Structure formats: structure tokens, C-alpha cells
Simulated assay, not measured.
Amino acid sequence: MTKPLLTINDMSITFTSPDEADIEAVRQVDLTLTPGKTLALVGESGCGKSVTARAVLRLLDKNAKIPTGEILFDTGSGAVDIAKLKSDSLAMRALRGAEISMIFQEPMSSLSPVHTIGDQVDEIIILHDRLNKKQARERTVSLLDQVGVPGARDRANAYPFELSGGLRQRAMIAMALACTPKLLIADEPTTALDVTTQAQILDLLRQLQDDFGMAMLFITHDLGVVAEIADDIAVMYLGDVVEQGDVFDVFRAPKHPYTQALMNSVPRLMRKAERQRLTPIKGTVPSPKDRPVGCAFTSRCPHAFAPCPTVRPERTQIGADHVARCHLLTHVREEAMA
């Protein structure tokens, strides 16, 4: 068994609202990432995917806290509990960018508009690897060339607004890989791109992962992308991981009603005579303020029954690496044993 690189145990994240009440955005999440593997975190907007990822880098808002759980990261010389580190501590700054990097969702708002692409990549290299300006620029040009930026040396002197969306995203990837991190977090890195550029970026990420042997936490709501790039999948709903496991097992036999609903809402190619209407998920994701006491999916689940609104379901083991939180699984198992 490969030793886990990142292990999240029983992690919850709360935000303090203006009325000083704590709102639970993420509830008792358990995730594991191993070197060289990709874990996809999927779900609708507002389900807690980005908040979970930002907690790993301690980039949460000032009114956020991690009241329970641990985020264990293997540095090679021992495990560090990131949940106990302050966001501005020297220990956290040493990890951020060097050991753990992130590709943010929208490069135009994540890159500085008043600094060139080269200067922004140079800064990370100088900070973590202690190279001089000339050495850092040579590595920057090499990285930009490696991620497929044409005319890398000239592009290094360009500002973000002078580049296309695809080139800005490639520059963000180069910045994230500047110090060869062990863990790369990609927060919907292809959402704003056309399908051709999206395919190129996914191929690039797979190739770079093979080259560097890094683990990747890939956040998306596109199940087609998940099928193409992920080894494992965790499905989130309203801050809960409702189902997780090997991507093929989950896609072949989804057990949680929310995962099933996501799969059923994906458009499919059909002959004209076979065409059917899409099956959308009725309703919307509730606000964390209105979180049900029991199963988070209760208000939208077509199979909800007596215990769902009031009792949170336990994790049920379905296969060796496949688990789900659903009262239906427990109910069916109890009936089979009766």
C-alpha cells in the first residue's frame, strides 16, 4: 500500500455570521490522497468543494474556523496537522507553494493585473528556492515552455490581460508547478475554457502528473471531466461527502440518490428516435443556515422516508473502496438480514 500524502479526518468548517452564530459549511469530511493519484471532488455549486480545498492551504476567510478534525500532510520527515497551523505562520508559508499548490478557478482574477506573468512566477521560485533573479527567470521560461506557452521568453514579459484565457490558465499551472509540489489542487481549472482548450489542459495536467508524480485534488462539477482524469471520486452535497470510492465503481453503480441524480442529469448522445428530455434534479441546494438535522439531501430526495430528516446516516461500506451515507442502504441491509 502506498503511504497517503494527505489524510483529512472528521474535518468540519464553520463560518461566524454577523449575528455571531456559527454556520456549518463542511461537516465531518474524510478524504485520502496518495502520490500519483487524482481525487475528484464533485457536486453542485454551494456544496463545499472549494472551501474544503482552501482549508488544506489555510486560505479560508477570517470568519472561518476548523473546530474539529485534522488535515495530515506527509512532508517526508513526518506528518503535519495543517488544521493546527495558523494561516500566516512560517510553517504554513513553507508548505504553501512549495509542497502544496493550487490552480484557482478564474486566472484573470487570481493573477495580478499590474505584474507580468514572468515576475509572478519568478517571485515564487525566489521565495522558496532562494535563486537569484536571472536563475529564477530561466526556470520560469522553462516552465512556461513546458506547459505549452508559445514564445515563452516573450510571453514572460506579458501582462495577464494580454493573454488569452487558455494561455492565462497555462501560466497559472506553471506558477503552481514552479517548485514541483507534492500536491496540486485544481479548482475547476477548465470551467471558463472552450472544449478544445479544456482537452489540452486536461492532457497537460495528466502529463505533468506523470512527470512529477504528484497527487492531485481536482474540483469540478463536470462528470465527463471526472471520468477522463480521476482515479477516485468524492461526491459532496451541502458540506457532506455523501459517496466516495473508485471512480469506475461509483460511476458503474452509484448508491446514493444524489450521485444517481447527478448521473441521470448528464446529457447523452442518442439517435433521434431515442431522444429523451434531460432529468434535472428538482429544487436547489439549501443554505447552510437551513441544513437538515439528518441527511443533507432529504428535501430533494425522491426516496426520503421516516429517519431521513432527523437522523444523519452512517457511512455504509459497499465495496473495498466504496462507501456512501444513505439510510436506504442501511434499510435494505436490515431487510435482507430479517
Rank of each mutant, 00 (worst) to 15 (best):
D145A: 12
V147N: 05
V147H: 05
G148K: 07
G148I: 04
G148H: 02
V149C: 13
V149G: 10
P150V: 06
A152F: 04
R153F: 00
D154Y: 00
R155C: 00
N157H: 10
A158W: 03
A158Q: 14
A158Y: 10
P160S: 03
F161M: 13
E162R: 06
E162Q: 15
E162F: 01
E162K: 05
S164L: 14
S164P: 14
G165D: 09
G166S: 10
G166M: 07
Q169R: 08
Q169Y: 03
R170E: 06
R170T: 14
A171M: 07
A171Y: 03
M172D: 12
A174Q: 13
M175R: 14
M175H: 10
A176W: 06
A178H: 09
A178Q: 13
A178W: 11
T180Y: 07
K182P: 13
L183V: 12
L184I: 14
I185P: 13
I185Y: 02
D187A: 12
E188S: 14
T190Y: 05
T190D: 00
T190L: 06
A192H: 02
A192Q: 01
L193E: 06
D194K: 05
D194P: 01
D194Q: 06
V195L: 11
V195E: 00
T196H: 07
T196Q: 02
T196P: 05
T197I: 15
T197M: 15
Q198D: 04
Q198N: 08
Q198R: 10
I201V: 15
I201K: 08
L202W: 05
L205F: 02
R206D: 11
Q207F: 00
D210W: 00
D210L: 01
D211G: 00
D211C: 00
G213F: 03
G213V: 06
M214K: 04
A215H: 08
F218D: 13
H221M: 07
H221Y: 10
H221D: 01
D222R: 07
G224K: 01
G224Y: 02
G224S: 06
V225C: 05
V225M: 07
V226L: 03
A227C: 02
E228N: 12
E228F: 01
E228C: 00
E228M: 04
A230L: 05
A230V: 06
D231G: 03
I233Q: 04
A234M: 08
V235L: 12
M236Y: 06
L238N: 12
L238G: 14
G239Y: 03
G239F: 04
D240W: 02
E243G: 08
G245I: 09
G245N: 03
F248Y: 12
V250H: 07
F251P: 02
R252I: 00
R252W: 00
P254C: 04
P254T: 05
K255H: 11
K255M: 08
H256R: 04
P257Y: 09
P257A: 08
Y258F: 09
T259Q: 04
Q260I: 12
Q260K: 14
Q260L: 01
Q260P: 02
N264P: 01
V266D: 10
P267I: 06
L269R: 11
L269S: 04
L269A: 09
M270W: 01
M270N: 05
R271F: 12
K272D: 01
A273E: 11
E274Y: 03
E274D: 15
R275T: 08
Q276M: 10
R277T: 11
L278P: 03
P280F: 10
K282N: 15
K282C: 14
G283P: 09
G283E: 08
T284P: 05
V285S: 15
V285F: 15
V285D: 15
P286K: 15
